[in-house]
């Protein structure tokens, strides 16, 4: 078992065992992230693959200023975002809609659903909604940061989130009624 520093050092020397150890350590968590940002497993695999290739290629740029996991996570999210930037030419500018307030029933439903079930509803969101929802709700980025990342305005980010929430609520209502 390597220490984190040892793994990085060995990876920088193209030690394939260390690369595999690093991959095995972080791949399950990163694949979970990729699944959230993509529409299906196949796309998530593509993003994971691209992301790890970038990680190994640019590991020399990791400055040990934060945690390695944080850096890997950020790289993976950037890869997922770039993946959709290629696909989505532009995000529709949307007005901020008044979002329905979730009632306590919905909270209960969300609480009872497994991560896999929630993942399925997130994956069904349109690309733009899903990006903003993930970045804002799960990753904790501000709308200004999201705007910078996705090259959209802060207001667009807010409206996308609003729409995402609304869409999710509708989907959860359907689950509730089933």
């Amino acid at each position: 078992m390597y220490s984190e520093e040892e793994i990085i050092k060995r990876c920088l020397n193209n030690d394939s065992h260390a690369q595999e150890a690093l991959y095995r350590q972080y791949a399950p968590k990163m694949f979970g992230i990729c699944l959230r940002f993509t529409r299906n497993k196949m796309e998530a695999e593509d993003v994971l693959q691209d992301g790890f290739i970038k990680i190994f290629t640019y590991l020399k740029d990791f400055k040990n200023e934060g945690s390695l996991e944080g850096w890997i996570r950020r790289t993976m999210i950037n890869t997922a975002i770039n993946f959709y930037k290629k696909k989505v030419k532009r995000y529709n500018e949307l007005n901020i809609d008044k979002t329905e307030l979730p009632d306590s029933d919905e909270e209960n439903i969300i609480d009872k659903l497994s991560a896999e079930e929630l993942l399925a509803t997130i994956q069904e969101l349109p690309d733009g909604y899903r990006m903003v929802f993930n970045l804002s709700v799960i990753e904790g980025f501000t709308h200004k940061e999201i705007g910078d990342i996705l090259h959209i305005s802060e207001n667009t980010s807010k409206s996308q989130l609003s729409r995402a929430r609304s869409t999710l609520q509708n989907k959860l209502k359907k689950i509730k009624n089933q």
Binding site: P28, K29, G32, D111, S114, L119, I138
Partner: peptide, 25 residues
């Protein structure tokens, strides 16, 4: 609630992903 659900969410990726990465590297 969403954040909590996905905090420790992990999925084992298929083996061929690592094979592709290794091949690319």
């Amino acid at each position: 609630i969403f954040r909590k659900k996905f905090e420790s969410f992990e999925v084992q990726p298929p083996e061929h992903v690592w094979n592709n990465i290794q091949a690319s590297l």
